[in-house]
Simulated scan of single mutants.
Amino acid sequence: MMAYPHTRRSVLAAVSMITLLSLTACGSERPSVADIKGQIAEMSGDTEVSDDQMNCLAKAYYDSDLSDEAVRFLVEAEDVTAISPEDLSKEDQAASKKLYEPLVKCLAPAE
């Protein structure tokens, strides 16, 4: 009977560790195109950004050279306009500069 509390604590500790590791693993993945699009839709508010444009923008971010952490940072931000270049690594700053043209193309009116 005395071993039960120790065994129970060990099991609880193991379950906690597995949960922590699985959350960490999930947190390290790149957000999906749908997740990115959701953030774009939320941040675009009343502006007229079409569904096709949002898909294009989301795919551009997803396919970019931005790190998974930077993309996740953008998706989880409450206000993306408050993010400054200093919030990103040097590599992500360079990758974000490469995104300018693809993002502008996404927002160009359809011909």
Rank of each mutant, 00 (worst) to 15 (best):
A77N: 03
L99C: 09
C56F: 10
L103M: 15
F73A: 12
E86R: 08
A70T: 01
S67Q: 08
S67L: 06
R72L: 09
K90F: 10
A70P: 00
D87W: 01
E101M: 13
L57H: 02
C56A: 10
V75H: 04
V104D: 11
V104F: 15
T47C: 01
D65T: 14
L57K: 03
D79K: 09
S67M: 06
V75Q: 03
Y62H: 15
S50F: 07
N55C: 02
S89V: 01
D79Q: 08
D68K: 10
D51I: 14
A58E: 04
L66R: 04
T47P: 00
D51F: 14
L74R: 03
P85D: 04
E76M: 07
V104K: 15
M54R: 09
L66K: 02
E91S: 08
F73V: 08
S89W: 00
E101L: 15
L88C: 04
D65G: 15
T47H: 07
L103W: 10
E101Q: 15
Q93P: 04
V49Y: 09
A94S: 07
M54N: 02
A94L: 06
S96Q: 07
A58Y: 06
E101V: 15
C56S: 08
P102D: 08
E69I: 11
L57F: 06
L74P: 00
P102G: 07
T47A: 11
